[in-house]
Design a protein around this nucleic acid. Structure first.
Length: 539
RNA sequence: CGGGGUGUAGCGCAGUUGGUUAGCGCGCAUGCUUUGGGAGCAUGAGGUCGCCGGUUCGAGUCCGGCCACCCCGACCA
């Protein structure tokens, strides 16, 4: 396939895909096209460059581990799986129905856990008086650069500018100060689902956008122990539990270093997940704010002993960034792979027919299976679009639907259907119609488990322990092996900064379960290790 | 904010030293044939060539200014 021009390259690609229908998947081919185009564009190169990229199409699958290609693969999946679209406002995105349905399922599962741990939902305003942001010194320093402000409204300059919330600690602190009087008012356990705006220099759909959706929990406690327990409870029983059980992604629970903690927090904890290219993604954070915000906003109470005391507060959040984690944590060469528990569509029925009478028989069976599945609570859709079956197979694989149900003339004649799991398209099975619902439910369970196990195996295979700095640097420089490196760290911020400057790796967190026994030497400076830390390049 | 690149149909692109009516592929619409791994043929719709100004008989093409977007880096609570 000597593609000399874009046109013939495209033709060559599709002809090739038909000839070899094994690993040359949809996403691969589409990505390859896009990649070829952008490469040629970037280099402003001529025909030699284009011919070269045409030749690499077949092995693009393996190049997914390449960082540059990975980011292109990610964008392809986001747009081609119809999760989101670009917006006319730079850095903002439109979340499309398929992506929003995914978010709704995430919300439901997270909200259940938030409520199960004793919290209630409420809602605070989008606008915050500018002066509020200024109250907590560290907080203002952290957020000021990326705050959007309203200075004009109602046809005139505002007396005091309003900031569009980048997070709500300040306005919530202001209100809590009025709501908390006695130790009997505590703890205050509230959460809100909201949008926030942070003016980022560089954005990527779901991972970092100017506006994003999230939940932010804000609680007030009587003492440090209670606040700390709350912070860790949320991290483990809400966030880690959700990401591991619903999203099927293993995470590392740990504490952030001083330089990585939330602006204004006493301590920040995070869960960190590994993406398909070995980079880390912070999937959720939980902060023990100490008495910092209580002091700035005067959240105090009279305790049982009659003394007026400053309260302890916490805040914690997860966002639509989790969608990015899901994509990069499970996606493969064919596109997205939705964990069944969150999949907007858990099973898709693809009808196949030639003649009208065949269509009738197939339609009857499709309808029967569809109703049976729906009655059993399975989120199912029959795809009657006027496309050919092969197109639909690829399309739904790209969108990550866990189970495909093929129903054709052969099936109709035999009273059976054909099932294909997204995790292995060669594992086709036929089953009598009577058993379909039970079998689909079992398949969904096993796919959920399989996705977790695959992600866990990948995490383990890409987690290393570096005993010396040379080994550390080598690991961080090797794209094929890139992952998490566990090592001792002296606790010095200077040392941390040097590692970052030299390797681009940051301390993701210091795992909650620290090794027992004696500490080793800091991987960078050799001084006594203060903490066992996970280092990685991160999104 | 620094470095690099690109703006021509919804998307991806071509357009020679300036020269008639600006093309190609995908997608889209209509029809027929198809349908168990990304269909074929036919017909058709779709453009103030990013914006403003200049040079010229004539500008997608040359010159100047502006704007937007993309990539790499810095930043990212």
């Amino acid at each position: 396939m000597a593609g000399k021009t874009k046109a013939s390259k495209t033709d060559g690609a599709s002809a090739d895909a038909e000839a070899t229908a094994h690993e040359t998947s949809a996403a691969t081919k589409q990505s390859a096209e896009k990649k070829g185009a952008s490469k040629a564009k970037q280099d402003g190169a001529g025909q030699a460059k284009q011919a070269a990229s045409a030749q690499t199409e077949n092995r693009f699958v393996q190049e997914l581990s390449d960082l540059d290609d990975y980011s292109r693969w990610y964008l392809d999946v986001v747009y081609k799986a119809d999760l989101a679209d670009l917006s006319p406002v730079r850095g903002c995105m439109v979340i499309k129905p398929y992506g929003y349905a995914l978010w709704e399922h995430m919300q439901r599962a997270i909200d259940e856990r938030i409520k199960a741990t004793g919290h209630e939902n409420l809602y605070f305003p989008l606008f915050i008086p500018y002066s509020f942001l200024m109250r907590e010194a560290e907080h203002v320093e952290g957020f000021a650069p990326e705050v959007a402000m309203v200075t004009r409204a109602g046809g005139e300059e505002l007396e005091e500018p309003l900031v569009v919330r980048p997070t709500s600690e300040t306005i919530i602190g202001h209100m809590y100060a009025q709501w908390v009087q006695s130790y009997r008012d505590l703890p205050l356990l509230y959460n809100q689902w909201a949008n926030v705006v942070r003016w980022e220099k560089r954005t990527r759909p779901f991972l970092r956008t100017t506006e994003f959706l999230w939940q932010e929990g804000h609680t007030v406690h009587r003492n440090e122990e209670e606040a700390e327990a709350e912070t860790l409870l949320i991290l483990d029983k809400v966030y880690a539990d959700f990401v591991e059980r619903e999203m099927a992604l293993p995470v590392i629970r740990g504490r952030k270093s001083e330089s990585e903690k939330f602006a204004g927090a006493l301590r920040t904890y995070s869960i960190e997940a590994m993406m398909g290219d070995g980079k880390a993604l912070q999937a959720g954070t939980s902060h023990n704010l100490g008495q910092n915000f209580a002091r700035s906003f005067d959240i105090s109470f009279q305790d049982a002993d009659g003394q007026v005391k400053l309260a302890w507060t916490t805040s914690w959040g997860v966002s639509t960034r989790l969608i990015g984690a899901l994509i990069m944590g499970h996606g493969d060469a064919s596109g997205l792979r939705m964990p069944p528990r969150l999949a907007p569509i858990q099973a898709v029925i693809v009808p196949i027919w030639r003649k009208d009478d065949e269509r009738e028989a197939v339609a009857a069976l499709v309808s029967e299976v569809e109703q049976s599945l729906r009655a059993a609570g399975v989120r199912v859709r029959a795809d009657w679009r006027e496309e050919r079956p092969g197109f639909k197979f690829n399309d739904w694989e790209l969108r990550g639907v866990p189970v495909r149900i093929e129903i054709g003339p052969r099936d109709a004649a035999n009273g059976q259907v054909t099932l294909v799991p997204r995790t292995d398209r060669t594992a086709k099975e036929t089953i009598a119609t009577a058993g379909v619902t039970a079998r689909v439910q079992a398949l969904l369970e096993s796919i959920q488990t399989m996705l977790y196990e695959q992600a866990l195996a990948f995490l383990k295979s890409r987690t290393y322990q570096a005993s010396d700095y040379e080994e550390f640097k080598a690991l961080m420089a090797d794209r094929a092996r890139l992952g998490f490196v566990e090592a001792w760290w002296c606790g010095d911020a200077t040392c941390e900064a040097e590692i970052k400057a030299e390797t681009q790796a940051t301390i993701r967190n210091m795992p909650l379960d620290q090794p027992t026994g004696k500490h080793g030497a800091c991987v960078h400076c050799g001084r006594p290790g203060a903490a066992w830390a996970v280092f990685a390049k991160a999104y």
